[in-house]
Design a protein around this nucleic acid. Structure first.
Lengths: 203, 203
DNA sequence: ACAAAAGTGTTCCATATACACCCATGT
DNA sequence: ACATGGGTGTATATGGAACACTTTTGT
């Protein structure tokens, strides 16, 4: 019985939630897009395998990574009995990506406009999207999609992209500030028109 | 690489949350208590393996079963590289248990008074307990611990056992009734003093 | 009559929602 | 001057928390 990891790597581009897909070169599903992932090595923890595959296939290092669910139906991979442990991860818009990618063809797709996916990867993606939508309500998820310092408008864009719906600016700002999950810096971002105050996460 | 399942089987006894443990006969950890579980067979889904182990080791059939987390540290089992997919399950107090147990010695323990556990099973138990405590707030978890018809006091005992703290009777009853997750039957339970109305779950 | 569990309302506080205008800056 | 995104307050609705007594039955 073999064990793989598959990672749903999220980011925000042009105010929409995107994820990284890799075009498969080999059968099965050659030419089809799939999640980055691969086999767990004999002396490596499952978490470490996910981090390594992210490094090798997506060229990203030390990102937020969380286990999602294990998919273990016997027929899910035509090559034989392969169980996969799914993860999701997040990178800020700024991080340069796909550098170091050893897969032929990696690309970002909006979560609401995905190409056909190999294996049961569509189910994994939907599971991941549901998870982060739910976690947004009661955790700090979403911060990993931003650089260390960010404006409240940028944070709002992240939340709107994950939820897929617009939020009220005043209510949003009051909530994040009252919950005490961000703290203001003394810096301002002078890009655009009126400079916006920069914040960082607590803890 | 081998894959096992381990199941945290909860029930309520004497108003406290308990779980089923099995005394190991073989090394490693011979004589120690462990969660019911075992290897996933080659043509069996991981979910099916968990259901089968519950049947074989705990003698329970068709119970609520949900995947929890996959534990995959290389050193977690001294016999070699074994990854385990952890599940939790729930049975009502009424269900007769341990009938059909093929393990030598199965016993219920209160979650707050556990014996030393084999492998990383203590971490699995704590993860399961945290999960059901959180799910209590936003789902119908806890209903699986009761028979089809139950009184609101019995439901409150279940919630108190999982949360580990007493709840206000009036607030509890109002909440479950307003949320529309239970519906009253016309029957009453005549055990004890004043007969209590029986409810059942919606859906 | 008494013991035991069932059943029942109100007040208060915190949090979510709906909603519109002025401000600072770059062009 | 104007276009752009930054920033701010109030009123209302909703959900949670605290809190004590009466009712029904069996013994």
């Amino acid at each position: 019985m073999r064990v793989t990891v598959d990672i749903v790597l999220f980011t925000i581009r042009e105010r929409r939630l995107h994820l990284l897909l890799i075009r498969r070169l080999a059968e099965p599903f050659a030419g089809c897009f799939a999640l980055p992932g691969g086999f767990v090595l004999p002396d490596e923890s499952v978490d470490a395998a996910a981090a390594r595959e992210l490094r090798e296939e997506a060229g990203v290092e030390s990102v937020y990574l969380e286990q999602l669910y294990t998919f273990g139906e016997p027929g899910r991979d035509p090559r034989g009995r392969i169980i996969t442990v799914a993860y999701y991860a997040m990178v800020p818009q700024t991080q340069s990506l796909q550098a170091g990618t050893d897969a032929a063809d990696a690309a970002w797709f909006p979560v609401d406009a995905l190409p056909p996916l190999a294996f049961d990867h569509l189910a994994i993606v939907q599971y991941a999207h549901t998870r982060i939508r739910n976690k947004l309500g009661y955790t700090n998820v979403g911060f990993e999609l931003l650089p260390a310092k960010f404006t409240l408008s940028e944070l709002q864009v992240v939340h709107e992209a994950i939820l897929g719906e617009p939020l009220d600016k005043r209510n949003f700002r009051r909530r994040v500030q009252l919950q005490g999950i961000v703290k203001p810096t003394k810096e301002f971002q002078a890009t655009g028109r009126k400079p916006a105050q920069l914040f960082r996460f607590k803890d």
